[in-house]
Design a protein around this nucleic acid. Sequence first.
DNA 1: TTCGAGATCGGCT
DNA 2: GCCGATCTCGAAG
Length: 220
Amino acid sequence: MPSTHPPEGPGTAAQVLAREPLPREFFDRPVDEVAPDLLGHVLVHGDVAVRLTEVEAYAGPLDPASHAYRGRTTRTAVMFGPPGHAYVYFTYGMHFCVNLVCGPDGTASAVLLRAGEVVAGRDTARRRRPRSTERDLARGPARLCTALAIAREQNGADACDPGGPLRITPGEPPDRSLIRQGPRTGVNGGKETPWRFWIDGDPTVSPYRPHTPRKRRTTR
DNA sequence: TTCGAGATCGGCT
DNA sequence: GCCGATCTCGAAG
């Protein structure tokens, strides 16, 4: 039966993987400008590439929802560094999530990459997430990291380095009219800041879930 | 389709 | 110790 996905999307997989990364200046801007502009661009790690369909902006030390809110720590040091680098963190004891640092050195703002569509290396991604449907391969921040095999080792990686293993490369930006904006997912503080951006109608955008405080573990 | 709970561990108070 | 920028599965509707 006919696939809903073209074999390789715009450009062959080899072309997608070979593209030069976005210039560092792309990230050297306010985070709420960078975030929507990232939609449609492609994160490459090894032979897998994901076209971004959903992101969230975090504004550094002034943003109560940001990891940088409590200032610079060993964990958040990368966020306080130069733009264009990857901030990878571990959460819930089992998941990794990846951000791209924005703004001038020291700003500590970043864009969380929440979801995307695998556009190259589908077989590799499927092997990493065997239980996923095509649509779910990178649908959600932790799934995206699994599909791309992003983990602690990629923390601090320069995504603008043409020779690096992790690169953010130009893709097909969506029509501006398709970009939607709303409250961020799963965060307590700063709810009022509508800094989640996604491509309207794209099936790989993760379902919005309001923050549900986890129930206290029943100690028996 | 929606909801609830368990898994699992590093960073921070 | 407490809790989190999450995911998955199973049960119920």
